[in-house]
Simulated assay, not measured.
Amino acid sequence: MFPRLPVMLGVLLAVLFGLVGRVLADEVCAIDDGGREVCLAAPAQRIASLSPGATELLFASGAGDRLVAVVDHSDFPPEAVKLPSVGSHDRLDLERLVTLQPDLVIAWVTGNPAEQVERLERLGVPVFRIEPRDFEGIATALERLARLAGSEAQGRQAAERFRQGLAELAARHADAPPVPVFYQVWDSPLMTVNDEHLIGKVVTLCGGVNVFGDLSRLVPRIGEEALLAADPEVLLAGGRGEENRSWLDYWRRYPDLTAVARDNLFFVPPSLLQRPTPRLLEGSRLLCEKLEVARGRR
């Protein structure tokens, strides 16, 4: 009675499966640093970054034009300063963030308030958590963020430039004479890093020996007496800001400290070493140069 029904049904099924296939083809997925797979129906168009480091990574991965929100101190690249701020990394303005309607939020694993991030997820906002702990983690973060933003070519290129630059530094300093180093993260309380910390890995890359590298905590607190006893040949510090070298001046009160006696008190802008971004390569080059200066003063 309805001879064309099977044909029509076949056409409808073909269209249906075609639409499903197209949706699946558009879906993008990536594993975050919390070990969870995050999938989006299509590349993100409105991204919120909840740390200055994530902001840099997004711009470097080609997703800067998709950013609609950042947090305080997101100062690189210069374009980031113009974006709406949704509070600080440790105290988010969720109401303002939600009104900006992000379709993807990039969170900091240990730096953002867990309860606020979880609330975003309960509201249905996809959250991708990052916290690179080594060089390869930075490279893959670029690639994964680019995947979620639909800028894979640029992310892949940025990751390869980073890998290649670090490989060249490693080869150049592979046989360099070791230099005992102290890196100061903070002044009060006095804080440093161990060998598992990303900065500690940079020290090792450049042929340095972190005098507190064996401590168990990533960012241990130490006493001034412990530093004097370790007597590092080089003292490196970032400071409170990109140009503030006051931490180095403090140590000049100890003229018998080897680093002071040889004038091996070196400053590296903190954003170049303390953010897990491609600019770590620039910071690594500077740190390696400082250790070469120290070797020449022996």
Score class of each variant (00 low, 15 high):
Phe212Arg: 01
Leu148Tyr: 08
Val203Glu: 06
Gly208Ser: 11
Val185Pro: 01
Arg240Tyr: 10
Ala146Val: 02
Ala159Pro: 08
Gly241Val: 08
Glu152Ser: 07
Arg161Met: 11
Leu248Tyr: 00
Leu198Glu: 02
Val203Gln: 04
Glu168Ile: 06
Ala226Thr: 05
Leu227Lys: 00
Trp186His: 09
Tyr183Ala: 06
Asp214Leu: 03
Leu228His: 05
Ala149Arg: 00
Arg245Ala: 12
Val234Met: 10
Asn194Met: 14
Asn194His: 11
Thr192Leu: 04
Gly200Asp: 11
Leu205Glu: 15
Thr204Arg: 15
Gln184Ile: 12
Arg245Thr: 15
Gly150Asp: 13
Tyr250Leu: 10
Arg240Cys: 12
Tyr183Val: 14
Phe162Glu: 13
Asp175Met: 03
Ala158Pro: 01
Glu160Asp: 09
Asn210Leu: 14
Glu152Phe: 00
Asn210Asp: 14
Arg217Tyr: 08
Pro220Lys: 04
Pro232Val: 01
Pro220Gly: 02
Ser246Thr: 15
Val234Glu: 01
Gln184Thr: 09
Gly208Arg: 13
Gly155Gln: 01
Leu198Arg: 00
Leu215Lys: 04
Cys206Ala: 13
Gln184Asn: 03
Glu196Gln: 13
Asp231Met: 07
Val211Leu: 15
Leu228Lys: 03
Thr204Gln: 07
Arg217Asp: 11
Ala167Thr: 05
Pro220Gln: 04
Glu243Leu: 11
Glu243Pro: 06
Glu242Ser: 08
Ala226Met: 09
Asp249Lys: 14
Cys206Met: 15
Ala158Glu: 09
Leu235Ser: 00
Ala171Thr: 07
Trp186Pro: 02
Leu190Arg: 04
Val203Asp: 03
Val209Tyr: 08
Ser188Arg: 12
His173Ala: 05
Arg163Cys: 12
Ala230Gln: 08
Ser151Pro: 07
Gly200Arg: 00
Gly200Ser: 07
Ala159Gln: 10
Gln157Ala: 15
Gln154Tyr: 05
Leu215Val: 08
Glu243Ile: 11
Leu218Cys: 06
Thr204Ile: 04
